[in-house]
């Protein structure tokens, strides 16, 4: 029910942005049409409530400063990883070096070395640097799983995405 007005007209009128002529037409119509006047009353009441409740969301912080700082650190780590990342066509040794640098950033040197060894264990060789391209997908899957435990899902996703050959 919009009578002689479009939905866009109504929206502009409620926002107080209707052109002068349209606003005057609205006022004339609303003084004669109780149905539209009631609609305006209900819409304004709802908008008042909506703005009141929105205020709580706008002014009550859901995240603590420490959470924002932690998120910033994760984003910075990602940016650093991008700078270090070799091209997609990189060889296995290059990709391994990159993953090692990335894991060192995420969880320290010793853990990085151990994680790479653990991920290679049981494949054709226990030494990651001797892995073949055939074994690389399984190696990467293992490494992502290990990284999930050590550094969480975001770190693991980073390893997974950047480790692809």
């Amino acid at each position: 029910m919009t009578h002689e007005f479009t939905e866009k007209d109504w929206n502009d009128y409620l926002d107080g942005r209707a052109e002068a002529g349209t606003e005057a037409r609205f006022e004339r119509h609303l003084s004669a049409c109780s149905e539209c006047a009631d609609l305006r009353r209900r819409l304004r009441l709802a908008e008042g409530q909506l703005r009141l409740q929105s205020g709580y969301w706008q002014h009550t912080p859901v995240l603590a400063d420490a959470q924002i700082e932690a998120a910033w650190q994760r984003v910075v780590t990602r940016l650093r990883a991008d700078e270090l990342a070799p091209e997609r066509s990189a060889s296995i040794p290059e990709r391994l070096r990159f993953l090692e640098d990335l894991l060192m950033l995420l969880c320290g040197t010793r853990t990085a070395t151990n994680a790479l060894r653990a991920a290679a264990k049981g494949l054709s060789t226990d030494a990651p640097e001797q892995l073949s391209r055939d074994h690389w997908p399984q190696f990467l899957t293992n490494l992502a799983a290990i990284t999930t435990i050590m550094c969480g899902k975001t770190g693991a996703q980073l390893v997974w995405e950047s480790g692809k050959l």
Binding site: T6, E7, K8, W10, N11, D12, L14, L39, L43, A46, E47
Partner: peptide, 9 residues
């Protein structure tokens, strides 16, 4: 604008 009007209602 028209979508917003519907949502307001």
């Amino acid at each position: 604008k028209s979508r917003l009007f519907h949502v307001r209602k």
